[in-house]
Design a protein around this nucleic acid. Structure first.
Lengths: 238, 238
DNA sequence: AGAGATGGTGCGGGTTCCCGCAACGACTTT
DNA sequence: AAAGTCGTTGCGGGAACCCGCACCATCTCT
């Protein structure tokens, strides 16, 4: 069995290699790619079906690499391994993971034992395993009061790109007023409204993006990816 | 001589410890703090005058830790050591470094030789040393055409917080129209104007924040720090 | 000293944004 | 079937924003 490690930090890569050899004796070959693009290439060349993937990489991030790899090899098992427990990453992964495919998400702060457990569960057993820390985010407060739903998130992304209401409406196939209702609930859920109560009046649009960033609902990688999506959409539309 | 390492990633910490012992035989004691807050405490307790400081840390980032440390020990020499070449970090550091104080900035991707050189130059010789990669940013394009000046940057930060024009004017002591002129040049320098030409009209405020983020002119730590600044300013004002 | 450049300020108007009010369809509850 | 809930949509108005135009102060160059 072959496993591919995609990780641009040398220290983390060797640690991972180590833990991998220790946890999975059935692994006969460990490959190492230095960034997302190299990872895609290696997966294609070596016909890899088990990957450990870092998320933050300079040249091409883990989510984008995973998307193209899964497009070619939908049954490929991928364990994501990241520094941050950002909701943005979880959403990004949830959008691209194929039907019936095994994947996992482990934080770099997890113990060696937990990492080894995740390696076995995802890469060998084909289970889905998400760090508890992450899962806590998804159901934050146990109430959907503050959790954004799919359409709200879409509007948030468009807002973050700087689109104005009319364009968002066109792009998402809603009426202008509906977009504005979504924005309203966004302001509510992101806590923009309650701040405005306390005296100072804010620019709600900018404030919403600000709050989304500091609460790790979206991150800069999200913005960059959304920008590329927007450009292809623009091109299609003419 | 004592040196304090402030770094929350275990691998990087041990690597650093290693390089430090190798490069500076005059060091008799190496302390290690696990985050910014612990770093401040350790510097105070042990009366440290030489620090290697990571910038991205979860509980309290390196710039804030450096600020409080420098407030107590202005002649303390600090070598910052970071993954990213963000302009935002450089600006943050430039704002807090005391007069006549030695500091440095090395990227984690730098070679071991360069790291050791920087350790000696900053901590022992008391020189100022900034990674070339960083310095390239500061003078991007060799023209000040796209580089933000101090007041533009201030306005950008306030914009990013979601303040509206009138509040920015109050806070920065300018007239409303002047703030708007600054915003105009911000839109120009961040490339918001040129995008609007190509058909789609954008929300310039949000777009400016978006561009500032993806060009690494500001980052999320900047936003968080600015938010705290704003709150103390609000409290002072009543 | 006069000419020009640079940067701050006021005015006015066109545009976008925010959101209350009201209406309508789909679905659930009783 | 009546009543209630929820998401969507149109209308309208007040606030904020963007920005052209004009004026003035300071500073520099000739």
């Amino acid at each position: 069995m072959k496993v591919l490690i995609v990780e641009d930090d040398q220290f983390h890569a060797t640690y991972l290699q180590d833990a991998l050899a220790e946890a999975l004796p059935e692994v006969t070959e460990i490959l190492h790619a230095i960034d997302g693009a190299a990872g895609e290439e290696a997966a294609r060349q070596a016909e890899i079906d088990a990957i450990v993937m870092d998320l933050q990489m300079v040249r091409r991030n883990g989510i984008e690499a995973a998307r193209t790899i899964w497009a070619e090899r939908p049954q490929c098992r991928i364990l994501f391994w990241s520094n941050y427990a950002d909701d943005a990453y979880l959403r990004g992964i949830a959008q691209i993971v194929p039907e019936d495919c095994a994947y996992g998400y482990v934080l770099k702060t997890a113990s060696r034992a937990r990492l080894k457990l995740a390696l076995r569960a995802v890469l060998i057993e084909g289970q889905i395993m998400v760090d508890r820390e992450l899962h806590r985010l998804q159901t934050r407060g146990a109430s959907p009061r503050t959790r954004l739903d799919e359409s709200e998130f879409d509007v948030l992304v468009d807002l973050a790109l700087g689109l104005q209401d009319k364009l968002i409406a066109q792009r998402r196939g809603m009426s202008l007023r509906t977009v504005q209702n979504r924005l309203l609930s966004l302001y509510e859920k992101l806590g923009v409204i309650s701040e405005s109560d306390v005296g100072l009046t804010l620019n709600k649009r900018v404030r919403a993006l600000n709050r989304a960033l500091v609460t790790r609902t979206i991150n800069i990688e999200t913005l960059e990816a959304a920008q590329r999506d927007l450009e292809t959409w623009m091109a299609d539309r003419g």
